[in-house]
């Protein structure tokens, strides 16, 4: 359903974030992208929904070339792809409900939306999405009154509002403690399994990767250096692991989630 071909991104500063990256994603996969900070994970995810424009290469989404889209067509594709962020990226001063409803902006009448009016069924949809992630009682609170884990659940509810076919999750648990990390990834896994929503998720902790991924891609300095299934990564040797994380890397615990991508 998603095919990435020879993707390269060079930023204006000269930083090469991605070099000739190609891979495919099948419907229903839970693909985890691993790699050190700065290895290109965030850039890769942002190229898929064109928050970042790639320098070279093509991305196909169900036969449509995303990399060639503009304006309205691009927005139509974007609304089918939900996105979750490390820093949650909520509008802090708006209510939880408004934040969740904003996930619907690609569908509603643009003029009505400018005065913060949403159809009744969208408000009901929002309530259901919030119930699903357990924050329905916070609907009227300001987003910044919520804890980190709750804010990320708002982020998931916002993505659910898009009725996404795919969710891009850019280090969704890097700002959270391990217990919350499992809870958030649990929601993603449930959405992945029950709604058959494809998930592409970048992660730092190897144990989380082993627990949730159906397939893994390893990036190092913008290149794919590893590709494997859940079984493969469980059997990962130290040498292979060093290939991904660099010479100084050690297995498991030493890799922290604090660094921003």
């Amino acid at each position: 359903m998603l095919r990435v071909e020879h993707l390269t991104k060079i930023y204006e500063t000269g930083t090469v974030a991605l070099r000739d990256v190609s891979f495919e994603v099948q419907e229903g996969e839970f693909l985890v992208v691993i790699g050190l900070s700065g290895s290109g994970k965030s850039t890769l995810l942002r190229c898929i929904n064109r928050l970042v424009d790639p320098t070279e290469g093509k991305i196909f989404w169900n036969g449509i070339e995303i990399t060639a889209l503009k304006g309205r067509e691009l927005r139509k594709v974007r609304r089918e792809i939900g996105m979750i962020f490390q820093q949650f990226n909520l509008v802090k001063r708006s209510s939880v409900l408004t934040n969740v409803l904003s996930g619907r902006l690609g569908y509603v009448n643009p003029l009505w939306s400018l005065i913060n009016y949403f159809p009744k069924e969208d408000v009901e949809r929002a309530m259901k999405a919030m119930e699903r992630v357990g924050i329905a009682d916070k609907a009227r609170n300001r987003a910044d009154e919520l804890s980190g884990g709750q804010q990320q659940r708002v982020g998931i509810a916002r993505a659910l509002m898009q009725e996404p076919k795919m969710i891009l999750a850019d280090e969704p648990v890097a700002s959270l403690d391990p217990v919350l990390a499992h809870s958030i990834l649990g929601y993603l896994e449930e959405i992945n399994k029950r709604d058959k929503v494809t998930v592409i998720c970048s992660l730092h902790y190897l144990d989380l990767v082993q627990r949730y991924a159906t397939r893994v891609i390893g990036l190092r300095e913008g290149r794919i250096v590893y590709e494997g299934t859940r079984e493969d990564i469980r059997a990962l040797t130290d040498e292979q692991f060093k290939d991904i994380y660099g010479e100084e890397a050690q297995r498991l615990g030493s890799i922290t989630g604090e660094e921003a991508a």
Binding site: M83, F85, L105
Partner: peptide
Amino acid sequence: DPGPIEAIQATGAN
């Protein structure tokens, strides 16, 4: 904060 801008763009908003 550019984050929310990114997030709203990602929903397909104009």
